[in-house]
Design a protein around this nucleic acid. Structure first.
Lengths: 336, 336
DNA sequence: GTCTATAAACGGATAGAC
DNA sequence: GTCTATCCGTTTATAGAC
C-alpha cells in the first residue's frame, strides 16, 4: 500500500500520453482530413513508435471513435448556450443556424462525425434515434461503440469545456426538462435530444400539426440542415447565395408553416440572445468568410482544398490526391 | 484513300475498348464503391495491362469524370418522364421523390457524383448554378472538365437510353420551354434545369412568395433532398420512419407553404403519371426494400455495407476494413 | 517481476517505371 | 507483364525503467 502514489502517477502519465495521441490525431484530421490519419503519422507527431499507440488504443478505429466523441461534444457545446431561448421555434432556428455554422467552421470534424463512416455516425444517432419514444436509450444502438470512459472529456478544441458545462446547462435549464439521457456519455445523442426537445415543445404549443409525427419531422428537418452543410463541404459552387440566406429560407420553410400569417418576405423576429451567425444581408457568397459565421466555436478546421503537407515531391500529373482506398490490415493472427 | 475502311475499323475498335473500360469501371464502382476503383483492377477486369488504360484515358480521374457524366445522364433519365406533369408543384414533388429514389437505388453512383469529390460534383453544378440567370451556361465552371465528346452517351445502365430520349422529351414538352442548355453535353446541368424550370413556373403562378429568390429556394430545396439521401447512405439508423414518409414531410414543408389550407395529414393528391416510389404507407423502414423504391431505373448499385470482395483471409480482430487512407502513391518521379 | 516502449517484421496494397 | 519503392495497420520479440 505504500506504492499507491507510484501507481497513481503511472496512471496519470498513461492518461497524459493518451491525450497526446488524441491531440495529434485531432490535429491531423483537422488539417488533412480523416483519410490522412494513419497510426504511423500519429506516432511521428508525438515522437513515439507506432507500436506504442497500441498500448493505449486497440486500433486506429478506436482512435477515430474517440475523435468522433469529441466532435459530438463540441457540437453539443455549440448547442448549449441556445437552450435558454424561450420560444421553441426561435430556439430551433438558432439551433439550425448553429448546426450549419458548426459544420462550415469545422469541415473535417463534421465530415468525420457525419459523413465518413456509418458506424461513426451511428454511434451518435443510435442513442438519439429512439429518444423521442424511449427515455434512456443512449448508446443503445451499438453496445461498446463508445466505450472510452473519458473520450468525450476533451473537445476537439481543448479551450471549449464541453460535457461538464453542457450537462450543467441542460439540466439547469427548466425549458429543456425532458430527460437528457447520458449527456456526458453520449454527447451526440444529447445534441440530438436538444433539438427533439424544442420540437416537442413546438408541437405541445400547437404550432405544429398535431397529427405530425415528431420523429419524422425532426429527421427531415435535420436532413435539411445536413444537406446544406454537406453540399457546402462537397460542392465548390454551393450555395450561390450566401449561406445565411439559404439557411434562413430553409428555416422558414420548416418553421413558418403552421402560422396562418406567413409574413413571407422579412422573417427576422426577435432573437432572444446573442445567437449564432445568420444575420446575413444579401452579400454574395463570402467564400473565405465561412469560418466567421461560426459563433463561439474556435479553432476552425483547415479547409480541405489546401494541401496541408506539401511533400517535396508533391503533385501528380493530372489527378488530385483523392484516392481513399482501404489499405492493409486484413490479417487476424499470423502463423507465429 | 483506300485505307479509309481500315482507319474506320481501328477507330471503332478503339471506341469499343473504351466502352469496355468504362463498363468495367462502372461495375467496380457500383459493386465496391469509388474508393475501390483502381487502374489495375479495371485492367484485370478487362484482361488488359494497366498501361493500356492510359491509351484511352489520361488518368483515373478522367475515368471517374466519365462515370460521373454517365451518372448525371442516368439521373436525368429518371427526371425526364416527370416533366410532363402539368402542375409545377406536383412536378417538383415528383422530381424530389425521384431524386431521393435515385440516390437510394444507386448509392454508389450517387456517392460518386454528389458526395465524393468537389470537382466531380462541381462539373455538373458549374453549369446548373448559373442557369437561372444565364441561359447557355453549361460547362462554364471548369472548362475542359467534361471534355469527352461521348462520355455521356452511355448511361450507367446501358439499357436506359439517356441523353437521346432525354433531349427529345424535354424539347418536345411545351411545359419545359425554358432554354435547356446543352442537354447531351451536360446532363447534370440539364437535370438541375428541370427542377429550376418547375420552380420558375411555380413562382410565375404566384404560388411562391414573389419576393423569394428562386435560386436560393432551389438550392435550399435541393439541399433538403440531398440531405435525406446523404444521411440515408451514410447513417445506418436513418431514417427511423420510412423514407417515403420523410420525403413526404419535406416536400410538404417546401411546397405547401403558401397554400392557406395546408391539409397537413394526408398529402396525396392526384399523381398525374406513373410516378416514382413514395406510395408508402406507414411500414417501418424496409431496409432491404430501398432499391424497390426506385422507379424505372434498373440495376441498382450494391449497397455499400456488404463486403464485395471477401478475401479468403478476411476479418480482423477488432477493426473493419474501412480505412480510406490514400495508400502509397505519393511519389512522382523516382531517382531513375 | 511488471510495465512501457521499441525495432523489426508481416501481409497487404498501390502507382508508376521498366 | 513484372518489379520496385512506398505506404499502410498490426504483431511480436526484445530491451529497458521502476
Amino acid at each position: 500500500m505504500l506504492c499507491m502514489g507510484i501507481v497513481e502517477r503511472k496512471k496519470r502519465q498513461k492518461q497524459a500520453l493518451r491525450e497526446r495521441i488524441l491531440d495529434a490525431a485531432r490535429r491531423i484530421v483537422v488539417r488533412e482530413g480523416f483519410a490522412a490519419l494513419s497510426m504511423r503519422k500519429i506516432a511521428d507527431a508525438i515522437e513515439y513508435s507506432p507500436a506504442t499507440l497500441y498500448l493505449h488504443f486497440a486500433s486506429r478505429d478506436e482512435i477515430a471513435r474517440a475523435l468522433c466523441a469529441e466532435g459530438y461534444a463540441q457540437l453539443l457545446a455549440t448547442f448549449v448556450p441556445l437552450v435558454g431561448i424561450a420560444d421553441p421555434a426561435e430556439r430551433l432556428k438558432a439551433l439550425g443556424r448553429a448546426y450549419v455554422a458548426f459544420g462550415v467552421a469545422h469541415p473535417q470534424t463534421y465530415r468525420l462525425i457525419f459523413m465518413e463512416d456509418p458506424s461513426y455516425t451511428g454511434a451518435a444517432l443510435g442513442g438519439a434515434a429512439g429518444v423521442s419514444g424511449a427515455s434512456g436509450a443512449s448508446g443503445a444502438g451499438q453496445p461498446g461503440a463508445l466505450t472510452d470512459k473519458d473520450a468525450a472529456s476533451a473537445a476537439m478544441d481543448p479551450a471549449v469545456d464541453t460535457t461538464a458545462s453542457a450537462t450543467a446547462a441542460i439540466s439547469a435549464d427548466p425549458a429543456a426538462n425532458l430527460a437528457t439521457p447520458a449527456t456526458a456519455e453520449d454527447p451526440g445523442a444529447a445534441a440530438m435530444h436538444i433539438m427533439l426537445a424544442a420540437l416537442e415543445q413546438l408541437r405541445a404549443a400547437g404550432r405544429l400539426p398535431a397529427s405530425m409525427d415528431a420523429t419524422v419531422w425532426a429527421e427531415a428537418f435535420w436532413a435539411t440542415l445536413h444537406g446544406i452543410v454537406a453540399l457546402n463541404l462537397t460542392c465548390p459552387v454551393f450555395p450561390t447565395a450566401p449561406l445565411d440566406t439559404v439557411v434562413g429560407v430553409a428555416l422558414d420553410a420548416w418553421l413558418n408553416v403552421p402560422q396562418p400569417a406567413p409574413q413571407q418576405a422579412n422573417r427576422r423576429t426577435a432573437q432572444p440572445r446573442g445567437v449564432v451567425g445568420a444575420a446575413g444581408a444579401r452579400k454574395k457568397k463570402p467564400a473565405a468568410d465561412h469560418a466567421a459565421q461560426a459563433s463561439q466555436v474556435e479553432s476552425p478546421d483547415k479547409p480541405d482544398n489546401v494541401p496541408p503537407t506539401p511533400s517535396p515531391h508533391a503533385g501528380s500529373p493530372t489527378a488530385l490526391p483523392k484516392k481513399p482506398v482501404s489499405a492493409g490490415a486484413k490479417r487476424k493472427s499470423p502463423t507465429t
